[in-house]
Write a protein that binds this DNA or RNA. Structure first.
Lengths: 202, 202
DNA sequence: TGACAAAAAGCACGATCGTTCGTAATACTC
DNA sequence: GAGTATTACGAACGATCGTGCTTTTTGTCA
């Protein structure tokens, strides 16, 4: 009982790596078994189906994201500082992360947007929750009087997420060395435009 | 010689559809042959390799994008009106388009960001060109005195592209009914912040 | 230590993948 | 309409895919 759980976790760790470069569909049981020096069938029995494996990988990715981005950001002060922490850690998560292929959740978003099934459903759930989390952080910033009361939280969340997606694109596909700077500047412009008494935007 | 070219084009059209939902990697020659009611080998001989097929599909997608987004936007007046036209048509292209799976170029961007090869190289080329095109349009808007002279064209291009990526995400994965409105509001905020004498941003 | 449960391996399956090759059918040119 | 170049097909290949089943190995606990 104990051994099984241990190898299961080991498998999932390497599955996360593999899926981050190959995608959740490209994640193949044969190659995954090879990487873990075990048989296909031995590995397979831990998950019951490929979809089960995908769901577990997604769950692991979500847990890691929360642990590396969301949770530590909660230690920042409510309002703008917390939003700033969320953004910074989110960016770090994308490139620094041990995963060679960047953020699995972002890759999966593009991959699964037209693939119905339980995996897509689970991903949509996670992404919706995240959008809500961001909007909530914006609402707090309004309460704290860091942001103007007429700032639209879901819109701000959309804009924030968009910047991160732009960063992912510029950094990972284009290998643009200015990606980080641009993303930060876009973030500053966005935050600046939401502040109570606004000065210059750019 | 004529017949061959005709079927080749027909194949590519349906390949574009298939690739928009399944991705360029998920695009399989067997299924594609089935869709076109012909044999695998007959279809295959038109492209020589799967990579050749992918490159041709990419080329077709690029041509269509230019024809449906870039070229008509050139008919708009130089400066802000043209940028507005680019943005609007870009958004239209993403969802309205005959392709069931949205913009292939965007899907491929996430799919190929860690897959070295000729296909990735070609895509990067296209995406870099597009970023340049956007920046050029911004520079024109500065020349026309629609935008402030201190607006950073590549940064503005980054922000614009980011909004579109955010739209793609919200619309195609989350099926968010507010995606279009949010994208447009984000665009207005961006343009507003770039205008010569700036009024309210949001 | 021996009994029992859990985990891993082995083997095979049907399907599909991209690709090659030889041949049949078709379209184009004179 | 004959001759030729082009286009398409059929069959097969080795590889890999996800997934069962059965057996062997391994870990756990009384």
């Amino acid at each position: 009982m104990r051994k099984g759980e241990a190898t299961r976790e080991r498998i999932l760790e390497s599955a996360l790596e593999l899926a981050s470069t190959e995608g959740l569909t490209g994640l193949s049981i044969g190659r995954l078994a090879e990487r873990n020096a075990m048989s296909k069938s031995g590995l397979f029995s831990h998950f019951g189906s490929k979809e089960g494996l995908q769901l577990d990988v997604l769950e692991l990715a979500t847990a890691k994201f929360r642990e590396r981005v969301f949770t530590p950001a909660l230690r920042a002060d409510r309002g703008e500082p917390r939003i700033r922490a969320l953004f910074t850690r989110w960016l770090d998560w994308i490139d620094h992360q041990s995963l060679p292929g960047g953020c699995l959740l972002t890759a999966a978003a593009a991959e699964l947007d037209d693939q119905p099934g339980a995996t897509r459903d689970a991903l949509v759930d996670v992404q919706r929750q995240w959008a809500d989390t961001l909007a909530r952080a914006v609402r707090i910033a309004i309460e704290e009087r860091h942001f103007r009361p007429d700032v639209d939280p879901p819109l701000f969340a959309f804009q924030l997420h968009a910047i991160v997606l732009g960063y992912h694109h510029a950094r990972r596909l284009l290998r643009d060395p200015h990606a980080g700077r641009r993303a930060r500047e876009a973030f500053e412009a966005l935050v600046g435009s939401a502040r109570r008494r606004k000065g210059r935007v750019a």
